[in-house]
């Protein structure tokens, strides 16, 4: 059996929705366990006293990245069949900045606000309402900004493809940067934890 199972037709659409629900449960569970259901934990990332956003995100990224890479290398997973979003460089950078601003103002991102709302956080629920409004505004303005939103299209572009380096080298570099980042983050936490005494989590 070669993965992705759905794309090889091992099960149909109805069953895929059950999988969606189960994967969602696990996703929500780990987000909540990581502390992502609470805005102060998330915002702490930007004041250096608790860097769990960076740590959790990059651990997740390297875990999945290594998993995909080695499953592919063993011939168990056809990487080319995994849906890959095309790059629109400038809109994505601009969108990223808007997201960053929204994060500081609101304290969540769409996924984490869902978790936060589910655990009764009123601010998370309001944030989620805001996301609905924001997407509606985008939809209404789309005819005006569609040119910009579709500019600098680069197709399906990978990091290693763009830099002309082998896939394995890119994987190695990302792991190295992440691990170095983790110890840097821990250092910053210790430093800023004393500054904002008692706010941060235990530094690892």
């Amino acid at each position: 059996m070669i993965a992705p199972f759905y794309k090889f037709g091992y099960f149909g659409e109805e069953f895929s929705l059950i999988i969606a629900f189960l994967i969602g449960i696990a996703f929500g569970f780990f987000l909540e366990r990581a502390g992502f259901g609470s805005a102060d934990k998330l915002a702490a990332q930007f004041y250096f006293y608790d860097m769990r956003v960076f740590k959790v995100m990059f651990t997740a990224i390297i875990t999945a990245m290594l998993g995909v890479f080695f499953l592919g290398a063993f011939g168990l997973l056809d990487i080319n069949l995994i849906y890959f979003t095309p790059t629109f460089l400038i809109p994505q950078i601009v969108g990223g900045f808007i997201l960053g601003f929204g994060f500081i103002l609101g304290g969540y991102c769409p996924g984490t606000s869902v978790v936060s709302a589910s655990t009764g956080r009123i601010d998370g629920f309001l944030f989620l309402i805001g996301v609905f409004i924001g997407i509606f505004i985008y939809g209404e303005l789309y005819p005006l900004i569609s040119n910009f939103a579709n500019s600098t299209a680069m197709g399906k572009q990978t990091l290693h493809g763009f830099l002309h380096i082998p896939y394995g080298v890119a994987v190695f570099a990302v792991v190295l940067i992440a691990v170095a980042g983790f110890s840097g983050a821990t250092y910053l936490e210790k430093k800023f934890n004393s500054k904002f005494l008692g706010r941060g989590n235990e530094a690892e």
Binding site: P91, Q92, V94, G95, G96, F97, I98, L99, F101, G102, F103, I104, L105, G106, G107, Y108, C109, P110, S113, L126, F127, L128, I129, G130, V131, F132, I133, G134, I135, F136, I137, Y138, G139, I145, A149
Partner: peptide
């Protein structure tokens, strides 16, 4: 923040 997030995410 949610509004900005929704807009930015779609962009």
């Amino acid at each position: 923040g949610g509004i900005m997030m929704g807009f930015g995410a779609k962009l």
